[in-house]
Every structure is written in C-alpha cells, then in structure tokens.
Design a protein around this nucleic acid. Structure first.
Length: 377
DNA sequence: GATGCGTGGTG
DNA sequence: TCACCAAGCAT
C-alpha cells in the first residue's frame, strides 16, 4: 500500500501529458459539449448560483430550479433582500437545504462586505458560507477568467481513470495528488474556463460512473484504465452502509378550512422547512400502538385531543442516511385552538406558500387532490 | 477526519 | 424492492 501511494505522489504531470489530455478534450468539447443555461454570457452571480445548485445534484434536476431562481432573484441584492422562507420555497424539492440557507446568508455578506459584488479572490470566496475549494475554483475560473483547479466527482473520476489510480481517492495523499494533477492539466488562463466545463461534461456524459462510453472518449488512446480494462472499476469506492429504517407519524389536523403545520428548527435535517406536526415512533412494531402516541403527542403540543383520527396516507421516503415510513393521520380539532410558532394554523388554500420537504409535500398534494372532502372540511 | 445532509434516476 | 449514484461543504 505504501509503495503505491508513493508512486502516485512521485508521478509528475509534464507538458507532454497535458497536451495529450487537454488538447483533445477541448476539441471534443467544441463539438460535443452541452448547451447549458449557465454557459451563456451570464453574471458571476449566476455562475455562483449554478455551482451551488449543482453540488451533488445532476444537471437535469437543477435546470428548472436555476431558471426559476434567477427569474425571482436576478441579482445578489434581490437575493439578500428576500426572506429565507422565500428562498427555501424556491429550493423546495432540490434537497440539501443548507445550500439555500448558506447562499442566502452569503448574499447578505456580499452586500455588507463587498458592496454587492461577488469577490474575485480565492480567500474572499472561501470565506463565504457554502463555498468550498471546488466551488471557489469554478467561480474564479469560469466567471472571472482566472486559473484555479477544481476536484469534484467528475474530475476525480476522469483523472483516476486516465492515470489508473487504484488507491482510494479520499486518502489524503491521493487527494492531494489529484488536486495537483487537476491544476497541472489546465491550459492557459484564456482556455481554463472552457476546460473546466469540458472535463465536467466528459465526466457526466462519457466517462460516467457505471458504463463509460470509451468509444466516444477523446482521450481514450492514452487512458490507462482503458488500457488495463479497469475503466468500470475505477475510481475505487467503498461500499455504502445499509441505512436504518424508522417509522414516523404526522397529524393532518383540520379546523374549519385551516390545517396545523410546524416549522422545523434552523439546524439539522430539512432545516427551516414546514411539515405536518408529528414525531418518530418509538415502537412501531404494532401499528395499533400509533394511536396512543398520536393522542399523547397532540395533548402535549396543543393541549387538545384530535377527533375522528384515521389513516390518511402512508408515505415511504428515503433520505441519505435513513429510510422513513410516515403514517399520516387526519383528524379534526373542534373550536379555536391558539398556537404559537413553530406551530401555525394555515388556510388550506395558502399551503402552497410554504416550503415543505418532499415527503410532506406529498401530503399537501394529497390534500388538494381531495378538493372537497366532507369528512375533513 | 468522519459524519450529516435530499432527492430522483437507473439497472 | 433495493443498491448505487450525482458539479461538496460544514461541523
């Protein structure tokens, strides 16, 4: 293991290697690169937004969110002036909501510290929440025409294959070498922005994780993984741990034409999003045990017993680190029950103004599909 | 340095 | 149904 590690560290990227890799890549991009909205002549702010949205998220998913976001917040000042709630609403369904929170906070900082202009130095960008080394590199290179490397999933995969790196790319020394490599392969400053887009496109469309399309690859001739037949195996990845499964319940509490919702705390999972109040079931082995917990929960929350509780829908949902089965019970509350934040009564036709997680959005959708349900309304 | 953080697509 | 994967960053 040590021998391999030192071999990678010693490996030097010279001008010849760069030519063999970079030139055909740029030619390929010229002919086969994707036409994406953030590749038109757009502002550094737009590049920034796209880079944040694209973190761990595929292009097809991002596109509609990107378009909407820039339409509503065309400038950093617009974003900074908005409520976090409105930003989260636009982010609803995209996932990793800390990105939205950080982006919003960063916009406020840019207004306060940089007169509303996105800074163009590595240190200043890195000091903003949500911007790490790769995102800073992408912004500096693509938006500000500088020459900073990135090392995202695409670049990592392409490099591990081209140089047949069999070690774990997350290992510190290997990671450091890959960063160096990423920088050395970059062309002149003038072409660097194009180059970054090219290598990311290659990773996304040709040098894909599972079944790379080597016959379409511009650098196949010199790809070491290809020569060894290892293109499908590299980069090395460790098996994902099996995630646990938990049961939850939520209450769809109805009073007149209003329903009760709850805002999640600003830290942790789905931070700041709205949901139908509920909790994890300690013991869901027996479905019959839900009702007592349901009653006790609302007795505690609003000091009131819901009436006519019955199963409204069952939702299965997968998060990064656990699976959830959510039992949603509808029930009626008689008379006015005052609540205070994070609980809130909201008219049914106003629910669309609130940002819900995807699981709970299914409840909202199920509700509007009902139209008039005499049992509930 | 390991872990937490969403969702949708795919085989 | 399930395992795996996708333009990382914060803590």
């Amino acid at each position: 293991m040590k021998a391999k590690a030192s071999r990678v560290r010693e490996r030097v990227i010279d001008a010849k290697t760069r030519t063999r890799f970079t030139r055909p890549l740029l030619q390929w991009y010229d002919a086969s690169g994707r036409d994406l909205p953030w590749r038109a002549e757009v502002t550094p702010y737009a590049i920034w937004v796209s880079e944040i949205m694209l973190q761990q998220t595929q292009v097809a998913t991002v596109r509609p969110y990107y378009d909407r976001f820039l339409k509503v917040f065309p400038t950093i000042a617009d974003l900074a002036a908005a409520d976090l709630e409105k930003v989260l609403k636009l982010w609803q369904g995209l996932g990793y909501y800390a990105r939205a929170r950080h982006l919003h906070r960063a916009a406020l900082e840019v207004v306060a510290r940089f007169s509303g202009n996105l800074p163009d130095t590595f240190e200043a960008l890195m000091s903003l929440p949500g911007i790490g080394r790769s995102t800073a590199g992408a912004i500096l290179t693509i938006a500000f025409k500088k020459r900073y490397p990135i090392l995202d999933g695409n670049v990592r995969r392409v490099l591990c294959r081209f140089f047949a790196v069999s070690q774990d790319p997350r290992e510190k020394s290997v990671d450091a070498w890959l960063w160096l490599c990423s920088e050395k392969l970059m062309p002149t400053k003038r072409l660097s922005g194009i180059y970054l887009q090219a290598i990311m496109d290659l990773g996304a469309t040709v040098c894909s994780p599972k079944h790379p399309d080597c016959l379409s690859c511009p650098v196949e001739k010199h790809c070491e993984a290809r020569a060894l037949g290892l293109q499908g195996e590299l980069p090395m990845r460790e098996k994902r741990k099996k995630v646990p499964h938990y049961d939850y319940f939520a209450g769809l509490l109805v009073c007149g034409d209003s329903v009760l919702i709850h805002r999640r705390p600003l830290k942790g999972l789905l931070a700041g999003l709205w949901e139908f109040p509920g909790m994890r079931l300690e013991d869901a082995l027996v479905k019959e045990s839900i009702m007592p917990q349901f009653e006790a929960f609302f007795k505690n929350e609003i000091n009131q017993s819901p009436k006519d509780a019955q199963l409204f829908m069952t939702i299965r949902h997968v998060f990064t680190h656990f699976k959830m089965t959510l039992y949603v019970f509808s029930a009626r509350i008689a008379g006015d029950v005052p609540v205070h934040l994070p609980l809130k009564w909201v008219r049914r036709d106003r629910l669309s103004n609130y940002a819900f997680s995807t699981a709970h959005q299914k409840i909202v959708s199920g509700l509007s599909g009902l139209d008039d349900c005499p049992r509930l309304f």
